[in-house]
Amino acid sequence: MSTLNTFQLSILSQNDFGAADGSNLICIVSEANGGTLQQGSFPLNAEILLPIPPAEGVTPLATPTWFLVPNGEIQDTSYTISISCPTDPSYPITNMTINASDVSKWASVLPFDQRPNQIYSNGVYGVFGFAQTGPDGLIYTVTAGVLNPQEYGN
Rank of each mutant, 00 (worst) to 15 (best):
P92I: 11
T77E: 11
V69A: 08
Y91M: 03
I83L: 12
T65S: 15
K105W: 08
I74E: 02
N95R: 07
P92Q: 09
D76Q: 10
I83N: 08
D102E: 14
S108T: 05
S104C: 00
F67Q: 14
D102V: 02
S84Q: 14
L61N: 15
S101A: 09
P89Q: 12
S82R: 04
C85T: 02
F67V: 11
S84Y: 09
A107Q: 05
S84F: 11
M96S: 10
F67G: 10
T65N: 14
W66I: 00
P86D: 03
A107C: 07
P92D: 13
N95P: 01
P60Q: 15
I81S: 12
G72P: 14
A107E: 13
W106Y: 07
I74D: 02
A100M: 00
I81M: 14
S104A: 04
S84E: 14
L61E: 15
Q75C: 06
A100F: 04
V103F: 04
S78Y: 01
S104M: 07
I81A: 11
L61P: 15
W66Q: 05
P89C: 05
S78T: 01
T97S: 12
L68T: 06
T94Q: 14
T77W: 03
N99M: 05
S104T: 02
T94V: 11
N99T: 03
S104D: 12
C85Y: 10
E73C: 07
T87M: 11
M96H: 04
S78A: 12
C85M: 14
W106C: 04
D76R: 02
L68W: 08
W66N: 01
P92A: 11
W66L: 08
E73P: 12
A62Y: 08
T77L: 10
I74Q: 11
P89I: 09
Y79M: 02
T87P: 14
I81H: 04
N71E: 15
T87K: 13
S90V: 05
S90E: 12
F67P: 06
S90F: 02
T94M: 12
S90I: 00
N99Q: 11
Y91D: 01
G72F: 10
S82E: 15
T65I: 07
T87C: 08
N95E: 14
D102H: 03
I98A: 08
Y79W: 05
I98T: 06
Q75S: 14
T63S: 15
I98N: 07
S78L: 04
A62S: 09
D102P: 01
S101C: 11
S108F: 09
T87A: 07
Q75R: 00
S82K: 05
P64S: 12
I83V: 09
I93L: 12
K105Q: 13
W66R: 10
Y91N: 00
I83H: 10
T80W: 06
W106R: 08
A100N: 06
G72L: 03
P89S: 10
S84R: 12
A100Y: 02
T77K: 04
M96W: 05
F67A: 10
M96V: 01
W66A: 03
F67N: 06
I74G: 02
S101I: 04
A62N: 13
T65F: 05
D88T: 00
A100H: 06
T77H: 10
T65W: 03
S90M: 03
S84W: 00
P60F: 13
S101N: 13
Y91R: 05
I74N: 05
S84T: 04
D88V: 04
S101F: 09
V103I: 08
Q75E: 10
Y79H: 09
